[in-house]
Simulated assay, not measured.
Amino acid sequence: MEGSSMVRQQMIQFLLFSSAQLGVRPIVKYTALSLYAERFYPSLNKKARFMRDNSKRNWLLQPFRESNMQLFALISLWISSKIHESCPLSVKSLKSLGDEIIGEQHFTIRDFLESEVVFMQVLDFEIGVSNIAFLFLEDLLIQFRELARVGELVNFETCMNIMDLLYETEETSSLYASPCSLAASILACFLT
């Protein structure tokens, strides 16, 4: 995708904005970021080529459109909420938000359902979420607070703001392979 770094940044900002509008818990937001930014988005070119070569064209992937990528960002939030919430986001709430903030196109509920299947196909139906930086950050902060008084001075909200910023600026890309290192790096910001 041309200008993929800029497109990726816009989609991350869209996902962060959408998660705030929907009022999801941090674990839902960071799982969605992991699914979308670390797995789905990097796989698009490879999967799109595969789908094109095998005559399995899908209008959501061919051609790449900003509105479709925004739809997939909402889908990542939906899947994440299904994993972490006993009462996940409804497709109606996602559609309502999409109608408000996706200017280029209005999607139907059927489009949301179809895009969920496409999203899962791109991920090869592998949605394991135990390797998320947010979970490591929570665990490290708990351990740090048990070991040292200075741990009580670390503001968890600020840690999450740093993680958001790193996702937005793509500074986490070299640390994607090691979410524990990413979490430790964020926590280390408070020690310097």
Rank of each mutant, 00 (worst) to 15 (best):
A184G: 06
E168Q: 15
L60I: 03
E126T: 08
Q21H: 08
Y36E: 00
F136W: 10
K82H: 08
N54P: 06
C159M: 12
L153M: 12
D99N: 11
P88T: 03
C159F: 05
F134W: 14
N155F: 01
M6S: 15
T108E: 06
A48C: 14
S115M: 09
A177T: 11
H106W: 04
E2V: 03
A37T: 13
L147Y: 08
S86V: 10
E100A: 09
L33F: 03
P88V: 00
V129R: 11
S185T: 14
S5K: 15
K56S: 15
Q21I: 01
T172P: 01
A188T: 08
Q121I: 13
E114A: 13
S81D: 06
S55V: 09
S81G: 05
E168H: 08
D124T: 11
R145D: 03
L166G: 12
I101M: 07
K29G: 05
L16S: 04
F40G: 00
A32M: 04
V117C: 12
F190A: 07
R49Y: 12
I132R: 06
F112M: 09
F17D: 09
L187D: 02
M51P: 08
F40V: 00
L137E: 04
I142S: 03
M11C: 14
M120A: 07
G151Y: 02
Q10G: 05
L94Y: 03
Q121E: 15
N54C: 10
P42L: 04
Q121S: 06
G98Q: 01
E152G: 08
V129K: 10
S4W: 12
L89V: 05
G98D: 04
M11G: 03
N161S: 15
T108Q: 09
V154M: 06
E146D: 14
V118L: 12
D99T: 02
I79C: 05
M120P: 02
S19Q: 08
P63Y: 05
Q10A: 11
S80T: 06
I27D: 10
G128T: 12
L153P: 01
K95R: 15
M120G: 00
E104V: 07
F156R: 13
L165Y: 10
A184K: 11
I109F: 07
L141M: 07
K47C: 11
S81P: 04
R65S: 03
M6Y: 14
L165C: 10
A20S: 15
S173R: 15
S115E: 02
K92V: 13
I75A: 04
S80D: 07
Y30R: 04
R8H: 10
E138M: 09
I132M: 12
L182Y: 10
Y167S: 02
F50I: 09
Q70C: 07
V150Y: 05
G3Y: 15
M69T: 00
D164T: 10
D99K: 07
L141G: 04
M11D: 03
V117S: 13
R25G: 06
E38H: 09
S174Q: 12
L71F: 00
S4K: 14
F134R: 02
C87N: 14
L35T: 03
G23A: 08
K46W: 11
E152K: 09
S173V: 12
S96A: 11
E157N: 14
A73L: 03
T158E: 15
A20Q: 13
N131W: 15
L137N: 03
I101N: 02
S115P: 00
F134G: 04
A184D: 13
R65K: 14
Q9F: 06
E138C: 10
S34A: 11
Y30A: 04
G3S: 13
S173Q: 14
E2D: 05
